[in-house]
Amino acid sequence: MNSKFDESVEALLEAIRKHDSIQAFKKAEQHIKKLPELEHLAHKMKAYQQDAVLFQKIEKDQAASKAGQEADKLEQELSQLPVVQDYRDKMQDASDLLQYITKTLEKKINEELTDAK
């Protein structure tokens, strides 16, 4: 029984890996990874966000505000880049597929459990 289950899971995973939305996401992800300047900007944005939280904790409101504004500015700059927008779109499509599969499996399992009672 367990072997059949494992085979079914592996077949599902393989189908997911081959799905157009997953393939498109992987391609967009590879493209993003080839752009180190994006990683640098994202790292700077995270650093500003961390500074803002730290300054807030030590009650340095003006410094927290400035760091928060810098983080927001970088986030906006990153968000407007076409490569980032494409990546986010592809990630959303892949996420939608996985949510659909998860909900469908959950529904089928619940139906099986209800029928078994």
Rank of each mutant, 00 (worst) to 15 (best):
L113N: 09
K34C: 05
K57N: 14
A42P: 06
E111R: 07
I101W: 02
N110M: 07
V9C: 04
L35D: 04
E106D: 07
L78V: 04
H43N: 12
A28G: 05
K60I: 09
K34T: 13
V84S: 05
A71G: 11
L41N: 06
S95L: 05
A15M: 10
V83D: 01
S95R: 06
L81I: 14
V53L: 10
L38Y: 02
A24H: 11
D89C: 01
E29P: 11
K18P: 01
L98R: 12
Q56M: 08
K46I: 10
L97F: 09
D115I: 03
E10P: 02
K34L: 10
L78G: 02
Y48F: 07
E37W: 00
K108C: 02
D6N: 15
D115N: 09
A28C: 11
E112C: 09
L54Q: 13
K18N: 13
K90E: 10
L105I: 09
L113M: 12
D93N: 14
A71R: 07
A94L: 01
D20P: 05
L81E: 08
L97I: 13
A94G: 01
Q23V: 15
K66E: 08
F55R: 09
D61A: 13
P36Y: 07
A11M: 05
E14G: 05
D96C: 04
E112T: 07
I16M: 11
L98Y: 04
Y87D: 05
M45D: 05
S21I: 10
M1W: 09
L41Q: 12
K60C: 08
F5Y: 13
K73W: 03
L98E: 11
L113H: 03
V84G: 04
E37A: 10
